[in-house]
Design a protein around this nucleic acid. Structure first.
Length: 302
DNA sequence: CATGCGTGGTA
DNA sequence: TTACCAAGCAT
């Protein structure tokens, strides 16, 4: 991420944040976890679900989840298997396990209340630099820089003048956002959310809608004539068809549906290649998503 | 620091 | 159709 010193605007931080916040005040999508009366737990659940997963897929799952487990204690009282089943096909089912674990930790270490402190949040299973700050900022109004992939792209373009953000570097990314962040806590909170929203809906990776951009006049990438990205490319994702990831997903689908141990023979019907099946099962067991029991494989009951 | 980890939408 | 991308995290 290029430094602010290379930019000509003497005070880009103030103008960018102000413009984003003006736009966000009218353009924010009415996402249910942004409602004024939602609990910190509701925000936490949304952030787990939103890790690498789009809003449109998360929303219905989040509604169901909050209806069934409205507090950390409610989820902690359920077996992990039920969390994994409710997670259904949101993807990365480890997150369901992590969320269940985090709920347990919140009950055990924090009396059932989501902690406000950044270090306490970071200590929760499945909570990393992004999620911890998102909870602190959006659930509690704390003034922290929140940096996700959208924000990284917005800053790379508007401030850095380049098309893409390059590989993540947490410390640098947080510094870059900090230098743009308004002093006022409420404005900082809005800017954190607004920068993400801008990246998700306008300053998108594929087809950015620069004509509709509220910070077009501040954008260094635009000023530079939209140069193509020439930095290091992200490693290409392996083909999903025929992959171990796909096999894991197929096995998990069987385990969720079964409500009883699934025999090896049944799994072989789903993943024909023995080697691929074995790697998938071993991996799932290692991750705690599956347990070897009498009669085959099952979801973890504790 | 690079990888592996699900699933589905989009160009 | 294929490839890219998505409110990241743990290892």
């Amino acid at each position: 991420m290029p430094t602010l010193a290379t930019h000509a605007d003497p005070a880009p931080s103030r103008s960018i944040a102000e413009a984003v916040n003006r736009w966000f005040a009218g353009a924010a999508r009415p996402l249910p976890w942004r409602a004024a009366d939602v609990s910190p737990w509701a925000v936490l659940v949304s952030e787990f679900m939103l890790q690498q997963t789009q809003v449109a897929r998360v929303q219905p799952r989040w509604e169901e989840w909050m209806r069934r487990w409205p507090t950390p204690a409610d989820l902690a009282a359920a077996p992990p298997s039920e969390a994994v089943r409710m997670w259904d096909r949101l993807g990365y089912p480890r997150r369901a396990l992590w969320l269940h674990r985090a709920a347990t930790e919140i009950v055990e270490r924090h009396g059932g209340a989501v902690p406000r402190d950044l270090d306490a949040l970071l200590a929760l299973q499945g909570v990393g630099p992004y999620t911890a700050r998102a909870i602190a900022a959006f659930a509690f109004g704390e003034r922290h820089p929140v940096v996700d992939t959208n924000t990284r792209r917005v800053i790379a373009r508007a401030v850095g003048g380049v098309a893409e953000a390059g590989p993540p570097a947490t410390a640098r990314d947080l510094d870059a956002m900090s230098s743009l962040l308004p002093d006022d806590a409420a404005a900082a909170r809005a800017f954190n959310a607004g920068a993400m929203e801008l990246g998700a809906t306008v300053c998108t990776a594929r087809s950015p809608r620069c004509d509709d951009c509220p910070i077009a006049t501040h954008c260094a990438w635009r000023a530079a004539g939209y140069p193509e990205y020439d930095g290091p490319r992200r490693a290409r994702q392996a083909r999903f068809e025929g992959s171990d990831r796909e096999a894991r997903g197929l096995v998990m689908r069987e385990l969720r549906a079964a409500h009883r141990p699934v025999a090896p023979r049944e799994l072989a019907d789903v993943v024909a290649e023995p080697g691929r099946l074995a790697r998938a099962v071993d991996g799932l067991v290692a991750d705690g998503l599956a347990v070897r029991v009498e009669g085959g494989l099952a979801l973890p009951e504790a």
